[in-house]
């Protein structure tokens, strides 16, 4: 089975974020980066499938040079090789353009299965998977918790709201968006880290992908990412601090007499 996993590198969760002066993004220089959480679970799912059914897992990632660090983590965990679309010169935040780039790279590989994480912890669009499915013409489903091979292709268990689940069967090739928490993540061992040194990270340029610069230009999209800002807090909580006994008495009083909840 040839499985491609799309991996995005995002700022470490709970990083201190500072918005740029033109309100278009956050300052990236001082940030630390990590593999997007649900992408990590997608990678884990891919590795388990490979271990069970044989084949190879290929990591696909798009980003500037710093992405290589996260790619190496993937290689250390057991991914066979990686593809890196280096976008130092043309950063885009449009999920459709990003998907176009990824699709171009994936088409060249003809995988049996494409796995993406459910959504990125930074932009949180959660759209890459379904859009990729459309561009690649693949059947897809999302919020996947378990995957197993079946006669008709693959059978997956996916999560619905309210604690319900659904089983869905898809023919291969297919695309799946993987939910966080679906598996126990493995740790990169020293052995894996040493072996990763010899694994290939192939750099892909726009030319390699057969795309022109204006095709990946954000300003041509129909959705405009205008500005970002720290939200004003409309609600102002009444905060209590200090001696627990005093707080408790005040709070109990407020709840009874002001909020009247008991």
């Amino acid at each position: 089975m040839k499985i491609i996993v799309c991996m995005k590198q995002v700022p470490v969760q709970d990083s201190l974020l500072k918005i740029t002066d033109d309100n278009t993004w956050v300052h990236e220089d001082e940030l630390n980066w990590e593999i997007n959480e649900s992408d990590n679970y997608a990678m884990e799912a891919a590795l388990r499938l490979k271990e069970e059914h044989g084949g190879e897992v290929v990591l696909l990632s798009m980003g500037p040079d710093r992405v290589k660090e996260s790619i190496k983590q993937g290689l250390a965990k057991g991914v066979e090789r990686a593809l890196h679309i280096n976008n130092e010169d043309f950063t885009t935040r449009d999920p459709f353009i990003n998907a176009k780039l990824l699709a171009a790279a994936i088409k060249q590989e003809s995988p049996d299965l494409v796995l993406t994480g459910l959504q990125a912890d930074d932009t949180g669009f959660g759209q890459t998977g379904p859009i990729l499915a459309e561009y690649l013409g693949l059947p897809h489903t999302s919020i996947v918790m378990e995957i197993e091979k079946s006669n008709g292709g693959i059978k997956v268990k996916r999560e619905l709201e309210g604690g319900w689940f659904q089983s869905v069967e898809l023919p291969l090739p297919a695309l799946l968006s993987i939910q966080s928490g679906s598996n126990q993540l493995r740790y990169a061992t020293i052995k894996g880290i040493m072996m990763a040194k010899k694994k290939e990270i192939k750099s892909l340029t726009l030319a390699d992908l057969g795309l022109a610069e204006d095709e990946v230009d954000d300003s041509n999209s129909s959705l405009n990412f205008n500005r970002i800002f720290i939200p004003e807090k409309t609600k102002k909580a009444e905060i209590f601090e200090g001696d627990p006994k005093e707080i408790a008495a005040k709070l109990a009083d407020k709840l009874k007499n002001e909020a009247k909840v008991f």
Binding site: K72, A76, L185, Y187, A188, T189, I193, A196
Partner: peptide
């Protein structure tokens, strides 16, 4: 580079 990866794994 390898050391960084190992420390990351250990921390996790």
């Amino acid at each position: 580079e390898s050391l960084k990866l190992i420390l990351e794994s250990l921390r996790q």
